[in-house]
Amino acid sequence: MGYMTDERRLIQETARAFAMKEVLPVANKLDPEKGDIPPELIQKLADVGYFGIVIPEQYGGLGLGVFEYCLITEELARAWMSVASIIARGNGLSAGRGMTDAQRAVFLPRAARGEFLGAAAMSEPNVGSDLGAISCRARRDGDDWVINGNKYWCTFADGADYIMLVARTSDPTDPKRKHVGLSSFLIEKPRGTLPPGVKGAPIPKIGYFGWKTWELAFDDCRLPGSALIGEEGRAFYYISAGLERARAHTAARSIGLARGALEDATAYAQERRQFGQAIGDFQNTRFRLARMATDIEAARQLMYFVCDEIDQKRRCDKEAAMVKLFASEMAERVTSEALQVFGGAGYTTLHAVERYWRDARLTKIFEGTSEIQQRIISDHLLGKSRA
């Protein structure tokens, strides 16, 4: 089955030109300085509609599918993964899970215009993959909610227009159903600030530059009753419903990183000379590049399949876990191989290959670690998967 139509090729080519012209030069300048994505670049992303790729046209979005979303994501990640990631901060609202029609009508057009970008506050200092262990609390106080607790790994907490918080509103009665009692809250705030009642500090990290990742402390942070999104106690289900798309998006980011490393390594292999010839003439280098390209294409074709399944509204949680696992593991391996082609030059910040390598390492951790993906896949194989 052919996935690529003329329309999709045009979308891909347009995104590729945008990434190479608008994103890559900014990435090459700012990533070594650990600088933030400039507001001007965020506005350019908004102008071409990339914050509303999957937001329905009735709300001002492009109304495209997950397939197109991942096509664009791969191109952006080839330039800078952080830019491929920030578009999710608008597109993430597209499903409006738990939102009322009135909330969708208010929030989605703003998100599509790039005027309502979010940050997710789910993980905690002692909570990563096990969301059921969340201890940050939200208690009712009249018509308001009061939040107390700590959050970790909240990327873009300062630059976002809102923080989507997951907090515990009730305790589970069944120890095996710890995820029950978690609720979602949308905390609006001005860009460049943290909400009242919230303090934070950036977490030092080895990559994923372009924006800051925060540790947050909620100290009697007061929210109006309208901040609750969806039904109380249903946050886990809203999160779970979006995992297939999130994992396809991460696969696309992984593939983009690997492709950037391959393209740079291929060019370097034709320029760099040793023993009187280009290193690309050595069989070891040529075969290394061939293996890298094959791994990338295998991941891409699996991603295309998963994206098509999602767009056709067919359940594919096992396959989404597979592509996230395969693509992220592939990206770390391929970017490392590319760095080897560069030799000592690859271990400097003078070439972008080290950025791809550092960022690829993260893809094995976020949106569910490789170990979590293997558990999901093996649960399906062994008949232990749950609806």
Score class of each variant (00 low, 15 high):
D144A: 13
M292N: 12
A327E: 07
V66E: 11
T349M: 12
E271G: 05
Y69L: 15
V106R: 15
Q58K: 15
D311N: 11
A269V: 00
T266R: 12
I42S: 11
Q340Y: 14
E371H: 11
K313N: 10
A246L: 12
M303P: 10
G207E: 12
I239W: 13
F287M: 13
G207C: 14
V23N: 05
I206H: 10
P172N: 01
Q340T: 15
T348V: 08
A298P: 03
G343V: 01
D6P: 01
G65Q: 06
F305H: 15
T169F: 03
A88Y: 14
N91E: 04
R333H: 12
A119F: 08
A217Q: 11
V323Y: 02
N148S: 09
D281L: 08
K44I: 06
G197T: 05
A95P: 07
I11V: 12
V198E: 09
G159P: 07
Q373N: 13
V341Y: 00
G280S: 05
D220E: 13
R8P: 04
L289I: 12
S240D: 14
T250R: 15
H179E: 14
Y59K: 07
G92E: 01
E68H: 00
G230T: 01
T335C: 15
N148D: 12
S135R: 14
L350K: 11
T100A: 03
T73F: 00
R253K: 08
M164A: 11
R168K: 11
F236Q: 04
E115P: 06
D158P: 00
R259A: 04
D379A: 06
R97F: 14
A299R: 06
T250K: 14
G2D: 13
L117F: 05
V23Y: 04
E188T: 11
Y50N: 09
R386G: 13
L302Y: 09
L131I: 08
G98S: 05
D161R: 00
R191S: 04
Y304D: 09
F107K: 07
S94L: 09
S328E: 12
F51T: 00
I72D: 07
E371N: 09
A17K: 14
K176H: 15
I279G: 00
I55T: 08
G65A: 05
S183V: 05
R315D: 14
D47C: 07
W211D: 14
R139V: 11
P25W: 09
T250D: 12
Y162S: 01
A201P: 01
I86D: 03
M99H: 10
D158Y: 06
L117Y: 06
R78T: 09
R113I: 02
L71D: 06
Y59E: 06
S135V: 10
A345K: 13
T285P: 00
F218L: 12
I11N: 03
H351Y: 15
A79F: 06
F18N: 04
P25G: 08
K205D: 07
D31R: 15
K29W: 14
I134G: 05
I376F: 02
V306L: 06
D219W: 00
G63C: 00
G92I: 03
R177V: 14
G49T: 02
E7F: 07
T193C: 10
L302K: 15
A84K: 08
M81F: 04
R386A: 15
A138C: 02
T173V: 07
L64V: 02
V341T: 01
A119M: 10
Y3F: 08
A121K: 05
A111K: 02
